[in-house]
Design a protein around this nucleic acid. Structure first.
Lengths: 126, 126
DNA sequence: GCAGCTATATGTTTGTCGCATATAGACTGT
DNA sequence: ACAGTCTATATGCGACAAACATATAGCTGC
């Protein structure tokens, strides 16, 4: 019923950047701040690396993929009240993956900052 | 036959970031440094925002899309020697699009830099 | 018994991009 | 005359991340 408001130019553009969900998840698992999907969903959103609200489906898919690739291992936790949780833990490979992401993101952030400087310069000449 | 070497972990990860071809093209068209696809291909690669070598097909597709969206207009140039060139020029909408990209990239670069600081901290505890 | 929170999961579609390939004009050397 | 190379634009195919939608189920409080 058209309940979705029209996206601004900036939102349209922002959606074209990678959301960086995988590195966010790897980092949070590494710190121990969050261990299962539902928690990660909240934490990833407060982290801010992904810029906008992240889709639950995306989180669960990333976790499954990380496990399939050997970057994390999971165990079911049925102790607490409520539905069972699947807790994840990073493997050595997972830490290596996080390190790679960190390098790549560092390089990219640098290039982006330089781009912003140049583009701002260009745009301010009305 | 198997002439493609195995990608490193870092390359695999880098490939998952957006290439940011559109903002690169918008910026170059804005400065007047390059006006047609073939030139943009070289310039985008020297700019560095895209990190690795950009595919020609991607450039031409972005240009077509920009024109379809009204962010640029093109004219054929048959004056010089060699095959005809399609020269592009930014419209007002194109400049607005570049401004949006700049804002979005600035925010994201900031978040990425912070991520790198935190992740480096985490990773250095062997 | 139903609403609402916790928790995981998958189907479908869209968009960007990589790789491969096609076409063609112009110039250079043989 | 032709082959090769550089310039130049363009499309088909497929991979992959992510958005949107939806399904399922346990537990708590009323």
């Amino acid at each position: 019923m058209g309940r979705r408001r029209r996206a601004s130019l900036e939102e349209t553009v922002a959606a074209r950047l990678s959301r960086l969900i995988e590195p966010s998840v790897l980092y949070l698992l590494g710190t121990g701040v969050a261990a299962h999907g539902y928690d990660l969903l909240t934490e990833v959103n407060t982290m801010g690396l992904t810029d906008t609200q992240v889709d639950p489906g995306a989180i669960y898919r990333v976790l499954r993929q990380l496990e399939a690739e050997g970057a994390a291992v999971s165990t079911w936790d049925t102790s607490g009240g409520g539905p069972a949780r699947r807790n994840y833990e990073l493997t050595e490979l997972g830490r290596a993956r996080l390190a790679s992401w960190t390098n790549v993101i560092a390089r990219r952030a640098d290039a982006m900052q330089k781009f912003v400087e140049h583009a701002s310069e260009l745009l301010k000449e009305d």
